[in-house]
């Protein structure tokens, strides 16, 4: 569905991404992992069409992203950002309804309201619908923003869903519920691309993992193939042991840091 070929991106005389090629397929969750500054968020922005590649192509449904209008893109791809700050005292239900803006002209239809309500229910925030968003906790705000993105792509049969570190600020339960929602979107024909920091969550939920370091593709494949102890150690600079996850059929990465004595005291 989303085909990236030989993608490179330069800005301010710095090369952020070099010669990336991969595909995010419909029905699959692709996790992008890598150390800080590897270019994960930049890659997601390029996939979203927010920035233009310096070289290479990105095609959605076999059409280059550059051929879409911003309105057309808004009707087939949603993105949850890492940081969301609101300028005005927007209420929860207003925020979620904004996800429907690309789909209606002057006035929302009853269906738009229902979709917004259902999206809010999906993230378990329906009882907060009249609260001012900025008065919610960080994790609750993140869930409301997710509801907005879900409302945007709700009626699309096979859209693209991009999640930039979606679990940031969420508690354990909601981290897993969020990725469960992401998986369910994939099952409904979406291509889901998520930047994740937790390798074990990536191992548990992703169909494919793309590992980046310094803007280069280090590995791309199933969690089983990508998450080897040697590769993780090389990319992240941290010794790890790979175990078999006893509950799920996937690898479990356990860090075994060997910091200098000054840090371990």
């Amino acid at each position: 569905m989303l085909n990236v070929e030989n993608l490179s991106f330069r800005t301010n005389q710095r090369t952020l991404l070099t010669q990336l090629s991969f595909e995010a397929r419909a029905g699959e969750l692709l996790a992008i992992v890598g150390p800080n500054g590897a270019g994960k968020s930049t890659l997601l922005k390029l996939c979203a069409g927010e920035q233009k590649p310096t070289a290479g192509t990105i095609a959605l449904h076999a059409t280059p992203l550059s051929a879409y209008s911003s309105k057309q893109l808004a009707q087939c791809r949603g993105m949850l950002h890492q940081q969301n700050t609101l300028a005005f005292p927007v209420r929860v239900h207003e925020l979620v309804l904004m996800g429907r803006y690309p789909h209606y002209g002057a006035h929302p239809s009853p269906a738009d309201y229902s979709i917004a309500a259902a999206a809010l229910e999906t993230v378990g925030m329906q009882s907060f619908n009249n609260r001012i968003v900025s008065t919610l906790s960080g994790g609750e705000q993140q869930r409301v923003q997710l509801a907005r993105v879900l409302a945007q792509v709700w009626t699309i049969p096979n859209g693209l869903l991009l999640l930039d570190e979606p679990t940031t600020g969420l508690d354990l339960l909601h981290q897993h519920q969020l990725l469960d929602v992401a998986r369910q979107m994939a099952q409904r024909g979406f291509a889901v691309v998520a930047v994740l920091h937790d390798l074990n969550m990536a191992a548990q939920y992703a169909d494919q993992i793309l590992m980046l370091r310094a803007g280069r593709l280090e590995a791309y494949g199933t969690p089983n193939d990508v998450l080897t102890a040697s590769l993780v150690e090389r990319v992240f600079g941290l010794p790890v042991k790979r175990l078999e996850n006893p509950c799920h059929h996937c690898p479990l990465i356990v860090p075994v840091p060997t910091f200098s004595p000054a840090f371990t005291q």
Partner: peptide
């Protein structure tokens, strides 16, 4: 999620909470 994401495609999900907002 269990109640909402049933086996039906998302586009044809029953919309039950009209006027909930």
């Amino acid at each position: 999620t269990e109640q909402l994401f049933t086996d039906q495609p998302i586009a044809r999900m029953p919309i039950t909470r009209t006027g909930a907002l």
